[in-house]
Amino acid sequence: MSGGQSMLFVLVGVVAAVSALYAVLTRQILRSIMSLGAFLTAVAVEFYVLAADFVSVVQIFVYVGGVVVLMLFALMLSASGERHPLAGADRPGLGAVLAYLVGGGLVVASLGAGLPEPGKAPAQTVDLLGRSFLGGQLFAFELMGVVLLAAVVAALVVARGERQ
């Protein structure tokens, strides 16, 4: 990556990290979901900077226009009265320490890895992606069809169980 590119990457990365932190820490679920939306958009921008334009648009499509909407639906359908219940105190302590350790370890490892900078990005990602899907990754593609089918069935079974 060139200098300007990594500066852009770091800038958007800070936005992503801050919104992720807010999404995880806030006690109001609506804020948490909105902040997740901001985080997902920032990650989509990062994808684009990394020359993965198709992935970036898919991220906006599925996450911001899909998963966030789904979460808002779930929040609104289970709302009760003024505030959404956020029962009980959280449990910091051991979990927090573990997260710091893992995060710190990963950061140290990344700094020490000394990976080379990537070269020039291909001009056309969409065609390459399509060929990859139909070529080497055909099995993954078809498997995804099965996963989607399973997801419909599973989610509907779960949602139906409640009705009786």
């Binding site: 990394l50 995060g103 990963l106």
Partner: peptide, 15 residues
């Protein structure tokens, strides 16, 4: 590249 790895490490830790 280091920036990417650090960012994703930080995000992973936050999650």
């Amino acid at each position: 590249m280091t920036a990417v790895l650090v960012l994703s490490a930080v995000l992973f830790a936050i999650g």
